[in-house]
Design a protein around this nucleic acid. Structure first.
Lengths: 332, 332
DNA sequence: CTGAAAGCGCTAACAG
DNA sequence: CTGTTAGCGCTTTCAG
């Protein structure tokens, strides 16, 4: 920066101002400075800027996995919303593992983000402490924690799944099996399975037909394998409720391979409103959880808190899931 | 850091060493320091560390879109590979736009990454200049640029698509239509379409049957719409070649809705070896481009160059695409 | 094994 | 509209 200043014949301070588009630098001077900088191949150093001004210009975001269209939508929406305030996203993956998440959160906080947006409401004790003490706004999303760290933009995965189960029951399906819901790491998957159990019990139906699909991320292939097992184990089944649209599609493909008519013999319900559930034949009933809306509102809440004008309404927001009934659960 | 030092009764320098696990700090002192730091809620500031040591500990990566399983696989592999050398990924999205990419690259370079890994081989003039002058290793991936900036890990999208076209022709399909290939922004899509044209011409077949699917990212829905148009416009078609497995799946679903048998009446070929093409019924023939392998090798090349021991073989690497023939293009 | 001095490249605060 | 001074929180370097 001092090289540029010397070349133009001004002080480094003026160069600094020119780069920040500070109004108090004359337009002519600024242009000359930017031109000279470009000619010299000078690249502004954000690290130093960040250290001195105590503004890093980014918001840290954690998601379980990069390869999940729902979280990708959420992150995309966060990016878009933050970009309007010249903030960037610093993204990290937890691999559906609370220890990984703890390490990740520490790494992210070391870079001094201006806010932290995390997926989920369950964390290791140390991670919780770090978030509480970070002195920045924290948003938990995609869940409804009992005891929020700070702000929340989410929904109850259990209640959302109950929408689907009740729909299936309303359609006359009583022999239902749940596919998915890993206890060890996929917290939201386990909550959805609990939702299945709750809804079945309230209807006085057997709630113990559960097939584990294995470790997350949930895949189409896992759904196919689980369906194989379900058809073998519960020959009278007339509906499966899946933890995700991806496993639902895998399950439906398995039915097609085994000549099991969907929905005539077996109804199939998914979760998450992925593209696939709206494009397959037949289309798969699902639960729309508004991934983008969650991202937009999480970013808005973080921004409001950063600017010190977060209202009480910003702090705990419920984004209401909606059932989307389609052909896979309804006879003509 | 000086607070921690004071609390323990050592100098800040010793605290600094303890945090870096420098061997020259006694184990007992180190433990006491780390405990005290945790108790005080101290969080190490990477920015200052980074500024002074000139090592940021991260590698910048650009991809067109977060919501694409192929690029997600590549980024996942890069992350995993870099983690072994204690490097993190700083990720950015170009939205398939060269101007956005230019801005993004500037933003990323301002944070002084130790290497830059970009998707694609076409860039704005200014972006190229910035990359060349950055003084760090640059890897272009997912493409085979004529005039590389520095290192390359990729493949020819055109040749890869020719594999599929020749396979379709070998299967006796001659009335082929290409779905996809946006000129304006999706460089690799356009290259794949060129591959279609080249392969058709070499076979002496009409190469002008092209249906645009619109702006990227390519979606299943785009594929369905394009298939509608193709069936209307070219009633004699017996095969469609799609720019991506996603549009291929959309096209196949459209055929199912219109009672057009696949592959008996129309063969369908995809690209990219997404999960969907291996799970659908029938399974969709595709081209495996080894998304993870590209990421692993790009990261390895970047690491080698950072450590100053990149061989000539590391510099330009071809990851050979492989045709995966499946039911969607082959009669029993 | 530990410490003191100096400085990474920028900007806040104040002055003109 | 422009400049000067000091310092953000760490680590390099040199010294013990």
């Amino acid at each position: 920066m001092s090289d540029v200043a010397a070349a133009v014949g001004v002080s480094p301070m003026t160069v600094s101002r020119a780069f920040r588009r500070d109004a108090s630098v004359s337009l002519k001077t600024r242009e000359k400075i930017l031109e000279t900088a470009a000619a010299l191949g000078y690249v502004f150093d954000s690290r130093a800027s960040t250290l001195r001004s105590q503004k890093t210009g980014f918001v840290a975001v954690t998601i379980p996995s990069i390869n999940n269209a729902n979280f990708a939508d959420t992150v995309g929406a966060i990016s878009a919303e933050l970009a309007q305030s010249d903030l960037q996203v610093l993204l990290g993956y937890t691999n559906y593992d609370l220890d990984d998440e703890e390490r990740l959160i520490e790494q992210l906080l070391r870079r001094r983000p201006e806010a932290l947006i995390v997926t989920g409401g369950s964390h290791s004790a140390h991670a919780r402490t770090m978030m509480s003490n970070a002195g920045i706004p924290v948003v938990q999303m995609w869940d409804e924690p009992q005891d929020p760290v700070d702000m929340v933009v989410g929904f109850s995965n259990g209640q959302a799944m109950q929408l689907m189960v009740r729909h299936m029951i309303d359609q006359g399906r009583r022999n239902l099996v749940f596919l998915g819901g890993d206890d060890r790491s996929d917290v939201r998957g386990a909550e959805r399975r609990e939702g299945f159990i709750t809804a079945m019990r309230s209807a006085g139906l057997p709630a113990d037909r559960l097939v584990d699909t294995g470790t997350p991320p949930v895949s189409m292939h896992q759904g196919a394998l689980a369906m194989q097992q379900a058809l073998r184990q519960y020959p009278d089944l007339n509906g499966v409720v899946c933890v995700s649209d991806l496993s639902a599609f895998g399950a439906m493909s398995e039915c097609q391979r085994q000549q099991v008519p969907v929905p005539d013999q077996v109804a199939i319900g998914g979760f998450g409103a992925y593209d696939i559930s709206g494009q397959s034949v037949p289309e798969i009933s699902t639960v729309e959880v508004h991934s983008k809306e969650i991202g937009t509102r999480a970013a808005q809440a973080a921004l409001a808190a950063i600017n010190g004008n977060a209202t009480q309404q910003d702090r705990i927001q419920n984004v209401v899931p909606v059932l989307i009934p389609r052909a896979s659960t309804q006879r003509d």
